[in-house]
């Protein structure tokens, strides 16, 4: 589904007149329906990799080959901007711990808006949006409320709902559970498990290794720059009880 080859990115900061290296020589492959977990300490460039895939950052070296349903295989590093916009609206989702809210939009409207981008309209968008919010356990009383008033966990679940409602082929999860308590994390994990059952391909960053247990098919370690099968793939139940 997606193959990252020799990806490199640094940031040239003009007022410092120097370049800050972020990542170098990153390479991995994710097959359809797989979940790849990216681990590494803060500053090792995990988010940079995800943001490069999503073209929030412009990579300098390497290529990112993605099998698109609409365009066939294309290199996301060099793809035309219009194609990137299309892919973001229709194929590739991105979830971070921050909720990018619009002024005076209710949770329900935010999810509906995501559907509008895919040309689902009116009643149908409303129905699917409600279904999705219910699916991710966002209490019905909050649907018409502005997310500014939500708790951290509710925001993340709304964030995931908003990305997932489009049924993306590839979902990028950029530490969505950072700053959440265990109960909220568990709900998010449940949501991700459901996605996995539905066959969504995912690349995720989680700080919390315990959280990743049993969820990832493979792990990519930024520091050692290699892929591995998680050594200790125990069921999550064990982690929850501890």
């Amino acid at each position: 589904m997606i193959k990252v080859e020799n990806l490199g990115k640094s940031f040239y900061i003009h007022h410092l007149k120097r370049s800050i290296p972020a990542v170098r020589g990153i390479g991995f492959e994710v097959r359809a329906g797989e979940f790849l977990g990216i681990v590494g300490k803060s500053g090792s460039g995990k988010s940079t990799v995800l943001k490069s895939i999503y073209r929030t950052y412009l990579p300098e070296a390497g290529q990112i080959l993605y099998d698109s349903a609409a365009f066939g295989t294309l290199d996301l590093v060099r793809a035309d901007m219009r194609k990137m916009i299309y892919l973001r609206k229709n194929e590739i989702g991105y979830v971070s711990q921050f909720l990018n809210i619009l002024p005076r939009r209710s949770a329900l409207e935010l999810v509906e808006k995501a559907l509008w981008e895919m040309n689902a309209e009116g009643e149908e968008a409303n129905r699917i949006a409600k279904e999705t919010l219910r699916h991710f356990g966002l209490p019905e009383a909050l649907w018409d409320n502005y997310p500014l008033n939500f708790s951290g966990g509710e925001k993340v679940r709304l964030n995931i709902a908003r990305a997932v409602v489009k049924r993306p082929r590839l979902l990028l999860l950029d530490e969505p559970t950072a700053s959440l308590d265990d109960a909220s994390k568990y709900k998010v994990r449940e949501a991700i498990e459901k996605l996995k059952q539905n066959g969504t391909t995912m690349i995720g960053i989680f700080h919390d290794l315990v959280f990743m247990e049993g969820l990832c098919d493979r792990i990519y370690d930024m520091e050692r720059a290699e892929e591995s099968v998680p050594p200790d793939a125990q069921p999550f139940a064990h982690a929850r009880s501890s």
Partner: peptide, 11 residues
């Protein structure tokens, strides 16, 4: 560029 790229990775 894409709006978020201009804002997060300005060149």
């Amino acid at each position: 560029g894409l709006t978020d790229q201009i804002l997060e990775d300005p060149q």
